[in-house]
Amino acid sequence: MEILTIGAKFGVYIVMALVLVFALGVVTLRNLFHSALCLAAVLVGTATVYLALRADFVAAIQILVYVGAVMTLIIFAIMLTEHLGEKTIRQTNRQSPAAILGLLGFIFMIGLVILRTPWPVTKRALATGTSVMSLGKALMGSYVFPFEIISVILIAALIGAVVIAKKDPEEKS
């Protein structure tokens, strides 16, 4: 069993590394379609990490919504808005040096914080588990208000997206 544990731990680290690699692919690849695919990979990898963290429902939802719907949406948009054949156009603007420097600073500072903060990791917290039933109870119980608000926002976003994206009605003279 320890081999599985060690293998699992090892695997999680490998998945994390892959996610990071694919994320780099997302931001650097010239071909937007390839970026989108890398994004899909990142999303799947993230779902795996959720599973490692015993958040199985969220992992499932991640795959269903993100990879299923959002990626589809993105692919559609890519296809509607550009010619896929172009490879020669530079994809990064002139800000990259400044951005890289800033980001290195950012990583450094936040990393410092992360490593120095005494996280209150309790055994009891580690032992507690979740189930879909408890999530459903929480959603309908304490978090019913945000749940309803979300639905309103969804309607609003839906209508908004339709309004923005539809063609202007052509005026008949």
């Binding site: 400044a98 951005a99 800033g102 600073g105 950012f106 500072m109 936040i110």
Partner: peptide
Amino acid sequence: FLGFLAFIA
């Protein structure tokens, strides 16, 4: 972003 960085720092 840079402002945010400065703030954090």
